[in-house]
Design a protein around this nucleic acid. Sequence first.
DNA 1: TCGTACACTGTACGTCGTACGCTGTACTAT
DNA 2: ATAGTACAGCGTACGACGTACAGTGTACGA
Lengths: 224, 224
Amino acid sequence: MSAKEQRQVPSDTGLSKQRVVLEATRLADREGVGGLSMRRLASTLGAGAMSLYHYVASKDELLDAMIDLVFDEIELPPEGTDWQSAMRRRAVSAQQVLARHPWANGLMDSRTSPGPANLRHHEAVTACLRRAGFSPLMATHANWLLDSYVYGFALQAASLPFDTADELAEMAEDVYLPQLPPDEFPYLNESAAALVDAGFDPAEEFIFGLDLVLAALEPLRTAG
Amino acid sequence: MSAKEQRQVPSDTGLSKQRVVLEATRLADREGVGGLSMRRLASTLGAGAMSLYHYVASKDELLDAMIDLVFDEIELPPEGTDWQSAMRRRAVSAQQVLARHPWANGLMDSRTSPGPANLRHHEAVTACLRRAGFSPLMATHANWLLDSYVYGFALQAASLPFDTADELAEMAEDVYLPQLPPDEFPYLNESAAALVDAGFDPAEEFIFGLDLVLAALEPLRTAG
DNA sequence: TCGTACACTGTACGTCGTACGCTGTACTAT
DNA sequence: ATAGTACAGCGTACGACGTACAGTGTACGA
């Protein structure tokens, strides 16, 4: 039980940056980013509000750390498969993580400096593409396109009031269609009907677009 | 000068929902969404804070209205050309509008109910796709893919600390590269160098990915 | 002249992030 | 044993926030 070497370990009672950031993301998952205040966070940790400032310089830094923790949850592209499988896997993982932490997307645009997990991730993805034969420039194009798709999809999915095909079917009749006079929005009505019929599911939709994107990128692999 | 018919017109001195929402987006453009408070907004309008609540039920409703005003700025897909040109035109317009109002992206995920301009836009885009031969289901796929790309790109672009190729070149040496030890991030270093060489420009990057997406969607047009 | 409606406002409450200065404990040097 | 130092954590206070509530004044129809 020498004291020195376990100083960094967060004892069950003591605080630590890890514990603060982790509990903050849990709180944000539960109550949304609006429900995350330093006072509330502190009280779920059994501490006073100002104690947090020993581990985090400001709320902004806390938010940055939370974002980086989210990036840390995303699977890196696995090695040892073709590049499309690897990228699909990490894209799906990213989509799931962003669905788990819906607040993360909204935070991204305000914080400009990437954290370590973000950088690590970016490096791994770029490595995967380069090894698959993409030139540095084409790898950048691919990265932008893939990330745009992942983030944009998450953004759209987050603003849907339903998560599954069943929930959509329920809502369509009660909420959506009443807002859409058929003479003003004929095509949206047609779409809504088709989606309910087909059992639209966001997770499947993500894969559909993702595969289109991956296929579109294939020709870049040996160009440039 | 009968009084009745110009009641809705915002006289130069009087307030109106239009004036409130418009000034709010101007304020947000200038100072970011964090700088938009009811008090500050009121004072730029030369009014008391509580006066705003005669035109807007809450700040949330104000934000919704601002988002819808942003949608209203986006060009609808023009009729009378092939669908790819039409969609490219509206996508580029959307990208420009989102770049002009960087705060809009971050707001999207929290507000779930689309405003009238949003619906009108969605209807027009769907109509364009349907008339081009997409089935209702394929039109939905296309819509999701395109919108994901547009929003996701805007999100990424907003978190870049530079806007043009020249600014990137300046920043790369001073800010970026020092954060990227070459032994830990070899591929990111390689990328950064390639981008500076090639004169990476976000606007061009957008078009590049967009054209890939449009081409990938072409086969869906006659399927399904 | 009165009444009523409406555009607008001042004050107040609870909450936020956080600056500042204070506690208590643990450990080192004497 | 004692004093000194470092640091984890806290209490209070300040200015800004969204907005509930109870006004105030002006315009206009009766």
